[in-house]
Design a protein around this nucleic acid. Structure first.
Lengths: 198, 198
DNA sequence: CAGTTACTGAACAGTCTGTATGGCATTGAT
DNA sequence: ATCAATGCCATACAGACTGTTCAGTAACTG
């Protein structure tokens, strides 16, 4: 008796309706009635489950993040060196499956706070990872790790966003990850086709 | 008789009020009355100038973009190689002067569409620049220029966002640009302190 | 100074919100 | 199969915000 079937049905329908509609018209343009209508649910029922539409949105994205976290955990444990390998690949795969939701979140829809939080968390973790790695290998960073972390996160995010927004994905996930790895190792100058400088 | 002084006064006050309030409470939380109250202007006057609050926001950001464009033009002409040098520096300076507005825009406040447009425009221009440069120097890109452009823009934007959000700027603009240049030339691996791979 | 133009304050209908209600239908457990 | 519990529905309501209109007043330009 974990949960009443009706409850589950309503919640699911409302979540799905939200995603559809945000994609069609954008979050701010939506009214609660739009959502309940699409979900084929009474407006009163909406308020029985969620405080307002931002609440619904918050829960939907929170679920997505939890799911992502669960899928990422083993990949992170595997890849001792850093994040750029398996974890990113795993994220791209997740993004492929949940494409609609990823698009919405990455567009910063719904005041964009879930996205900001996620980015900041990533950036902090990454900066820490960079520092730890430098320590471990007894090397001195040539660039402020804080800045470097922002660059890294911004980069991954930009690629993810671009990849998810394409109508027909021009590159498979594996290919994208390979390019990102090359880029990290050898720099953008090399990537453009030039020989590395002296 | 370019413009009535009262008109100018009202518009300015409303724009300034918007910026203040968005920073304090976020765009979506604001009502038109909040804005007119802060600006000390009648609500009816607001509608004499702007269709709604998104209209006001759009104009304010459009002005900012125009200003940026004017400041960037000479810098772009100067730096024949690409964007990473003078233009970025100039943008950072502009961002320092208009810090509040930059913060708002970069947070994707107000449905974030102005930001998206700007980013997409940058990405397209950058991709084109990369292609042209490769052609000019007769080298073959080792990574899809489209992806590379997204990476570059995402990177600059992340840094800019980080730089503008800091309470006390930890690095001067010149320093940031230097680091970005190094990063572009030698890659993140090098930046972390490691010797370049074979 | 005079004519023009912008601002003000008030009022209006319309939309959306969030809450409350009592009757009805589905559900899960016995 | 039955029953008590619980979620759903339709409806209604006050309150907030929107966008428009208008007549009176003040400020500006030339």
């Amino acid at each position: 008796m974990a949960e009443d079937r009706r409850t589950r049905r309503s919640r699911r329908a409302l979540g799905a309706a939200l995603v559809e509609l945000v994609l069609e018209r954008g979050f701010t343009a939506l009214t609660v009635e739009d959502i309940t209508e699409r979900a084929d649910v009474a407006r009163a029922t909406f308020y029985a489950h969620f405080r307002d539409k931002e609440d619904l949105f918050a829960r939907v994205t929170a679920d997505l993040l939890t799911e992502l976290g669960e899928r990422l955990a083993p990949a992170v444990a595997d890849s001792a060196v850093g994040f750029t390998g398996k974890p990113v690949l795993e994220m791209l795969r997740h993004a492929r499956e949940e494409r609609d939701l990823y698009r919405i979140v990455l567009r910063g829809e719904g005041d964009g706070k879930p996205l900001q939080m996620f980015v900041d968390a990533c950036a902090r973790a990454t900066a820490e990872e960079f520092r730890a790695r430098a320590e471990r290998n007894a090397v001195k960073p040539r660039i402020d790790p804080e800045l470097l972390a922002r660059v890294w996160v911004g980069e991954q995010l930009a690629v993810l966003r671009w990849w998810v927004e394409q109508d027909a994905p021009s590159l498979p996930a594996e290919e994208v990850v390979r390019m990102l790895l090359d880029l990290a190792m050898r720099g953008r100058y090399w990537a453009s086709g030039f020989e590395p400088p002296a």
